[in-house]
Structure formats: structure tokens, C-alpha cells
Amino acid sequence: MRHFANWGILGLTLIFLIGPFVIIILAGASAGPNLAFPPEGLSLKWYAKVFTIESFRASFVLSMALAVFGTITALVLGIPAAYALNRYDLPGAETIRTIVAAPIIVPGIIVGLALLRYVVVPMNVTVTVALFMAHTALVLPYAVRVVSSSMHNLRADMEEAAVLLGCSRMQAFTKVVLPNIRGGVLAAFILGFVTSFNQVPVSLFLSGPGVRTLPIDMLAYMEITFDPSIAALSALLAFMSLAIVFVAERLLGFSRYV
């Protein structure tokens, strides 16, 4: 009886959480011209159409580039910061931690607007660069937090041992610290990538003519057209995320870091 109730509750919750994706996948596979569920016959034409829409191709490339390079930049800034916050007795460590974590606390739309108004416009920065900076700032807190927590479990005396065995400080970092936080770094990358790729509010104000991230482009497309291609594209993105998470989980038990 208890068992039954358990699965009942879980079943309903999972239907609520996952059901919409099933609907989207099927709606995208409609043979008819309108968004509908159940679909009016099945075909893959909308899935195929997504790839022919020029603006989606461009915005997909932009989103990809932002996610990859923004996250890498965030890691380049974040790994040394995480290391210093863990290993050094820094004056103002708490302040630095708060500053670096702050972009998580403040709503993305505000970050985007503030950047636009006080950095991009006055300094005449191009939209692409602005997006890149915004996405990096957005991912930085995750990079620092995830790398920090994987470094936290790593005893500092291992580096001391390495130095006593002849390493320079830098070698101790690359030969001992880095191999041991590899999982955390990879997890931070994936988390950062997904966050950046799916991000809307930060980019909302920073998109310019012809320069739009994919989610924003989708929002714009939705306002004009009401065909199943957005459903198909959404389904494709969902599959992409699933694939990334699945591979990450297989490789390093990703969920431990989230």
C-alpha cells in the first residue's frame, strides 16, 4: 500500500516534470502545418526545417561560441581564484568570495541592462564582445564554486610533499593539484556551458541586429511564426543537453558536483 502511494506520487511528479518534453518531441514531429498535440500525423519535416533556417544556424554558432569561450575564460579566471581562496590566508578573502559569487544572486536581466548602459554604450563595445563578457561573468561564480569544492577535499600537504620532492610551486600545481581536480574542472565546464547556452535574461538587452543567442532567436521566431519548428528545435536542444549530461555522468559522475 505504502509502495503504491510512493510510486503514485513520484509518477505524478515525474509526469509533471518530464511529460512536457515528450509532448514537445511529438509536437515537433507533426506532419501538419500547425502546432498541435496530438500531432496531425507524424513526420520529421519540422526537425529537418530547423536546420535550414539561416538565423538559427547563426545564433546556434554564436551561442556555442559564447558557451565554450565564455566558460573557458571563466575557468581561466576562476581556477586561480579558487586555488588562492582555498590555499592562501588572504586579506579580504570573504569580500573576494562575495564579489565573485555576486552575479549568481543578481537577476540576469539586471546584469545585462547594467552592462549595456554603463559599459557597452559608453565604451562603444561591440555586441559580440559584450555578450562574451556577460556570459563569462555569469559562469564565473559556478566555475569558482565547483572548482573550489573539489579543491577543498584535496589536502594542502600534498603540494608541500611535491615541493619537498623537488617540484617548483608551478609544477606542484600542474603535477599534483590539477590532476586531482580534473573532475571538478570538467564538471564546472559542463555546468558553465549549459548555463551559458541556455541563458536568456543576461543576453536580452545585449543582442543586436543579426547578433542573437539561440534562445533569444527562438523567442523572436515564436512571436512571428506559430509552426512546429520551435517545438522541433526545443526537442533537439533537449536531446543535446541530455547527451552532454549523459556523457558527463558516465565519465565522472557529474551529479556529485551539481
Binding site: 579566471l77 576562476g78 586561480p80 581564484a81 586555488y83 588562492a84 581562496l85 590555499r87 592562501y88 590566508d89 588572504l90 586579506p91 578573502a93 573576494i96 564579489i99 565573485v100 555576486a102 552575479p103 543578481v106 539586471i110 546584469v111 541592462l113 547594467a114 552592462l115 548602459r117 554603463y118 559599459v119 563578457m133 556577460a134 563569462t136 561573468a137 564565473l140 569558482v144
Partner: peptide, 28 residues
Amino acid sequence: RNRREGLALALPAAIFSTLLFLVPVAIL
């Protein structure tokens, strides 16, 4: 480990966040 070294490692991230995030948001 001296503090100057530690700050040199931590500051780029902090400065980046301050300039591109904290200051603009504060002005807003």
C-alpha cells in the same frame, strides 16, 4: 605561500567581476 602571490591569483577574477558586474549594477 605569501599573500601577494595569493592576491595575484585571486584578483583577476575579482576585478573582472567588479568592473563588469558590480560597478555597472551599482550605478544602475
